[in-house]
Amino acid sequence: MSTLQERLKEASRDAGISQAELARRVRVTRSAIAHWFSGATRELTGENLIAASAALGVTPTWLAKGTGPKTGAAAGLTGGGVAVWDSPEDLPDDDSRVWIDRWDYFCSAGDGGIQWEIRQKDALPFNSEFFRAIGSKPANCRLVMVRGDSMEPFLFNRDMAMVDMSKTAIRDGVVYAIMYGDEPLVKQVFKKPDGSLVLHSYNAKYPDKDIPLLQMEYVQIIGEVIYRSGSGFAAN
């Protein structure tokens, strides 16, 4: 069976995509991509797997494990595969398509009280392979719009983030949608040895928020951010 390194090189060669361009599309650093292509990274999972397979026009299962079809309905749209549509009825029938509700939860990626509005918008389509690859169930997921700049360049103002509301167990360094008191936020979360939390912003102009144990009752983990889409770019 081929290695991840071999599949990445094959797919990037077939797609005519350089490592620098792949880093830009996946929104990871060039050094991270270099690790992928050198063999230092032995597996891709979650959001990076989905983004890389879409950028390269291959299926997530093939890229991750070397099994199943290399390309097909689950692969990213490339070239003439882009579909332009005004309403869901304009799209051809596809049993593998899953519709995810889009909400205007205004998760603040900035500082200050942003209203948590719940105005449901039109759903957006995803392939069922996407959810199998990242281990999430569509029924648990919501698309939300981020407001603010504190998570740049990971998330930009008005970017879309998919939140899996079943994934609320805190894992160090993972980005979550949370409620802190009456303040909705999207932050990278770190847990201290004593059980208290640090809410970290990617943008250096925003200081970390320390949540002591006495204030943990005011913290509610809404869900893990498992996918993002918008104007974000990879750091050089």
Score class of each variant (00 low, 15 high):
Arg171Trp: 07
Ala55Ser: 13
Gly81Lys: 11
Ser231Gln: 15
Pro92Gly: 02
Asp111Cys: 08
Gln115Lys: 13
Val174Pro: 00
Asp104His: 14
Gln5Pro: 07
Val98Arg: 15
Glu117Cys: 07
Asp94Ile: 02
Gly195Met: 11
Asp90Met: 00
Asp172Gln: 13
Pro69Phe: 10
Pro88Thr: 00
Glu43Pro: 00
Gly16Leu: 06
Arg142Trp: 01
Gly66Lys: 13
Val198Cys: 05
Gly113Tyr: 12
Ser128Glu: 15
Ala34Glu: 06
Ile226Lys: 10
Ser136Ile: 03
Arg147Phe: 01
Ser166Cys: 05
Thr45Glu: 14
Gly113Asn: 14
Val186Asp: 06
Lys187Met: 08
Gly66Gln: 14
Tyr227Asn: 03
Gln19Asp: 09
Thr67Glu: 15
Trp116Gln: 10
Asp90Arg: 06
Ala235Asn: 11
Leu77Val: 11
Trp116Phe: 11
Ala40Phe: 12
Cys141Asn: 07
Leu199Tyr: 03
Glu217Trp: 14
Gly72Met: 08
Glu129Ala: 15
Arg228Pro: 02
Val189Cys: 06
Trp36Tyr: 15
Leu8Tyr: 08
Trp36Val: 05
Ile211Asp: 10
Asn203Leu: 08
Ser96Asn: 13
Leu214Tyr: 04
Asn127Ile: 03
Trp99Val: 10
Tyr105Ser: 08
Ile17Arg: 09
Lys205Leu: 04
Thr41Arg: 09
Pro138Gly: 12
Gly148Arg: 03
Thr41Phe: 05
Gln5His: 09
Gln19Gly: 12
Val26Thr: 02
Ser108Ile: 02
Leu8Lys: 10
Glu47Tyr: 00
Gly81Ala: 09
Thr78Gln: 15
Ala177Ile: 06
Ser18Lys: 08
Arg30Glu: 10
Thr61Pro: 02
Met216Ala: 04
Ala177Tyr: 05
Ser196Ile: 11
Gly80Glu: 14
Gly110Lys: 14
Asp182Gly: 07
Gly230Ile: 14
Trp36Cys: 04
Val82Ala: 09
Trp116Gly: 04
Phe37Pro: 03
Leu155Gly: 00
Arg132Gly: 10
Val198His: 02
Pro207Met: 00
Gly81Cys: 03
Met179Ala: 05
Met160Asp: 03
Arg13Gln: 15
Ala75Met: 00
Glu6Phe: 09
Lys70Pro: 00
His200Trp: 00
Asp94Lys: 06
Ala32Ser: 03
Leu197Lys: 02
Lys205Asn: 09
Ser31Cys: 01
Met179Ile: 03
Asp90Gly: 04
Leu44Lys: 07
Arg102Pro: 01
Gln120Phe: 03
Gly16Glu: 05
Glu224Ala: 04
Ser87Leu: 03
Thr168Ile: 14
